[in-house]
Amino acid sequence: MSTTSAAAVEVTAAPTPQNDIVEVREITKFYGSDIHALSNINLGFPQGQMTTLLGPSGCGKTTLLKIIAGLLEPTEGQVLVHGKPVTGPGPERAFVFQDFALLPWATVTRNVAFGLELTGKPKAEREELARHYIEEVGLSGFGNKYPHELSGGMRQRVGLARALAVNADVLMMDEPFSAVDEQTRRKFQEDLLLLLAQEKKTVIFVTHSIEEAVYVSDQIVMLSPRPGRIKSIIRPEISRDASADEIRRDKRYLDTVEEIWTDLREYLD
């Protein structure tokens, strides 16, 4: 495990275009004139890795994610994807929403294919792709169901399949499991890791669960409360070859969780 202090972040986050698919440069965000959500964030997201934004509520993690997604404008600074500044949402980024954001009037198939429908892909083609990803996320046979007929965990699988279907390089997930119960959540985390290893995506993940962050991430970015600043960057370096149960009992896993908890604790007093 290696920890970089906030001061040294500048060095690690210095632009290395060959590795970092997404770069965040000097992002500052104000809501109105008085709410200072993010302050001078510099960060790199290495290609093919899973980076988690972790921090207490109100630290601006979701704001940062939505700025990277192009759904919010930063007050200052810029985001580069593949070295090009972003001005809005783009085809190389796909978003998984905290509240799933499924169309209640559309079947699972149409929901999964929705991103492709917007780009004007022919119906037969996009439904074929949708079928593939519905199978990938473990929902075969549910294609003709409507969201209200599915459980919370299954709805989020639909949200994930929709993001995968557009074949973006970067997957952005905003607390994807927060509306899902604990058992489903663990199973989903395990499935997600398997799937992502197979799909080779770069993932930016927002969570407030320390265990989740350590379990799924290659790199954890800890943010301090408002205004959000990078507090430290942790690379858990836990071997992903072990089984889920082994990882959850691994000493390094437990130590990292403990260390982050010690760090975050000071904000709660």
Partner: peptide, 28 residues
């Protein structure tokens, strides 16, 4: 639903698609 509108935007839906495929059915 603002979340559905944002979803449509994130998948690069145009304003017309946003109105016709999300807002109107949502309001139906």
């Amino acid at each position: 639903n603002p979340s559905l509108i944002q979803m449509c935007k994130s998948f690069q839906g145009s304003r017309f698609q946003e109105i016709w495929m999300v807002i109107i059915p949502n309001a139906a």
